[in-house]
Computed example of a mutant assay.
Amino acid sequence: MHFRHFYIDLNHDDYSDLSVLENDTKLAAVKAQGTSNWGTPKKTAGAMTSKIEGVHDLFMVFNTDAGANIHGVYLDTDYDPSSISTVTIEGVKVWGIANAICVESTVESLIVDVYNFAGQNISQAEVGTGLNTLSMARGIYLVRISDAKGNVATYKLSVK
């Protein structure tokens, strides 16, 4: 049985011998499922083995001679995304729903920057008071909100 192992913050010069990973933080082991057909995707999951905080580089390590066709990698948590905020702006709430990011605000003008998992700014919008939705594909995002007074808040959330 082959597994894909997920690690954070790897920094080795040589990976020809995977024993160098022994003391690194392993986040999950996920069973690799063969389909014998590139056009037949399979879903698989694995439990997180470590709790982490902050921003890290994520590495997927294969220990197999067979090929792999990865359609997507998703990380899911049991945490309420609206509660994972580094700073808040009074009167602003941010959360993810199916296919969208919601920004509810009593503040007149906000700039919303959305960053993907690779750290690329993929969307920027100016929103006003009330409930605003930004269409997004399924994934994990960092949302940076700034107001006219220079206050900035960053939210980590997932869109399902």
Rank of each mutant, 00 (worst) to 15 (best):
G91P: 08
A66T: 03
N99I: 00
K51I: 14
S82V: 07
V107I: 15
L134R: 06
S146T: 15
H71P: 01
A137I: 03
V152D: 04
N63T: 14
V152I: 14
V114S: 12
C102H: 13
S50N: 15
A32W: 11
V152E: 06
E53Y: 13
L75F: 10
G46M: 08
S36F: 07
G119V: 05
T106Q: 11
G91I: 07
S123H: 15
S36A: 09
R138M: 10
T129N: 02
T154N: 12
T44Q: 09
F59E: 10
F62C: 04
A148L: 14
N99V: 01
E53R: 12
T77L: 04
L27D: 00
R144Y: 03
T106L: 09
T106G: 09
T88M: 04
M136P: 00
G119P: 06
R144F: 03
L157G: 12
L110E: 08
N116Q: 02
V30Y: 09
L110T: 07
D78V: 10
I140T: 15
G34F: 06
T35L: 01
T86Q: 06
A32T: 05
T49H: 01
N37D: 15
D24T: 04
S105R: 13
V114T: 13
G119D: 05
T35C: 04
K42H: 11
I52A: 07
P41N: 03
S83W: 01
K93N: 08
G119W: 11
G128Q: 08
D113M: 05
L134S: 00
M60T: 05
G67N: 10
K31F: 13
D80T: 04
Y155H: 13
N69I: 04
P81C: 05
L157M: 13
E126T: 13
V103S: 11
V55F: 04
G91F: 04
N116G: 05
T64P: 02
T49F: 00
G119M: 10
Y115H: 07
V143G: 05
M60S: 12
V92M: 02
S158G: 12
T106W: 03
Y115Q: 07
S109G: 08
N132P: 09
G72S: 10
V103Y: 15
A137Q: 03
A148H: 11
A125Y: 12
G128K: 12
A68V: 11
L110N: 08
M60H: 06
T88G: 07
V107G: 05
N37G: 02
N151G: 03
A148G: 06
V152N: 02
I89E: 02
W38P: 15
S82W: 00
T106M: 08
L142Q: 14
E104L: 07
V143P: 05
A118V: 07
E90I: 00
V92N: 01
H71W: 11
A66P: 01
S82F: 01
I111D: 04
G34H: 10
T25S: 08
T25K: 12
K31M: 13
S85Q: 03
I145Q: 02
Y115G: 06
I52D: 09
K31N: 11
Q120K: 11
A118W: 14
N121A: 03
G150L: 12
S85I: 13
L75C: 08
Y155T: 08
I89A: 02
H71D: 13
G150S: 12
V87E: 10
D65H: 14
S146R: 14
L110D: 06
S50R: 14
N69F: 01
D65P: 02
M48W: 00
W95I: 05
